[in-house]
Design a protein around this nucleic acid. Structure first.
Lengths: 184, 184
DNA sequence: TTTTAAATATACCGATTGGTATATTATTAG
DNA sequence: CTAATAATATACCAATCGGTATATTTAAAA
């Protein structure tokens, strides 16, 4: 698979030769299916994100309760360091930073993914408010962005310092926030 | 200056030609002062970080009170989006992500900077505990890592979404944390 | 002013880059 | 079984890559 290569090395540091080696095809075959390197990188990013969102979605099926789904999101990220290593790291963080100032199309794709995730979390919070599980004082999108910003910070620190403690401490905080600020 | 180029584009996407253009010197002159491209990137990173730490240090001189210094750290990052754009983005975030899986020496430098910053913040908290401004219940290093993880998440989100609101909201939270959890 | 040494520029190197035109092989349709 | 079509491979392109040996210029020492 080519996605982890782009994700680990970044766009510029990934050569077509690297890709041919990983995929077992020649450049001719690759350029028969993709317009150029950028289109290939975008396809790889979309592929990885689709898998990631699918896994989160499956994980959230464990409960129908909105507040429990929020706990399940936190729970999903407890294993994210292991999980994301198979993807070559967190695609949102890695491609987000890599594409900034470098690749407009790729960056636009990252932004859309972030907005999609934030919308989904906000929808869960809205559902929780309607179901009477979450305080009506809570601004759903505001909370969603807060949660995602916390998690992305934890991902960066965990990967850079190679220390999962950053992730676990952040997730502990998030559980407290859900319990203390959201729950009625 | 070469540092912002590496910081913006990343190591692999920065060519020696880019550097010669920015610095007005030829490759011969550059390689007379640096062993190779990697040594140049490390020097550029160290230069940028030195400037960044200096600016933070100056900002903290506004008060001698440890608890006020914590508020001043938060205050410093209120202007960080503007400030760091002159550096080509946050060097810790950008080079940290870029160097991961790519450049061991550069990554090691990023880690040392993170540890240095965390130590400095932890020292302020320790001073605050000794001065009776901060609760003795607080684990200084624990709090320091928490603060820095929050801020790095905010930096990533602010840059990727080009929306300073992520930063400001995070800093608002941090002020509340200092007021509610640290202050005696 | 002459000599020495340091800094910079020039010109080049082999290797690799993304990309493509063309040839070849698989696959499908008739 | 044959013809048409799609997929893949081969061989190549100009441009650029990081790096270096050597020439030239600048600055300091004598």
């Amino acid at each position: 698979m080519v996605a982890p290569i782009f994700n680990k090395n970044g766009y510029a540091a990934t050569s077509l030769h690297d890709i041919t080696q990983a995929v077992g095809l020649t450049k001719g075959a690759i350029y028969g299916n993709f317009k150029n390197k950028e289109a290939l990188a975008i396809a790889a990013f979309k592929f990885t994100v689709k898998d990631l969102l699918k896994q989160i979605s499956i994980h959230l099926e464990q409960s129908n309760s909105p507040i429990q789904k929020l706990y399940l999101i936190v729970d999903f990220y407890r294993n994210y360091y292991n999980f994301s290593q198979e993807l070559g790291g967190c695609p949102v963080l890695n491609i987000g930073v890599d594409a900034n100032n470098q690749n407009t199309l790729l960056l636009e794709n990252v932004r859309q993914v972030i907005e999609k995730i934030q919308d989904q979390i906000a929808n869960i919070v809205e559902d929780g408010i309607e179901a009477g599980e979450i305080s009506t004082e809570i601004n759903a999108m505001h909370f969603s962005k807060r949660l995602y910003t916390l998690i992305q910070g934890a991902i960066f620190m965990t990967y850079t310092m190679q220390d999962e403690l950053y992730m676990h401490e952040t997730l502990d905080q998030l559980e407290q926030i859900i319990s203390n600020e959201l729950k009625i």
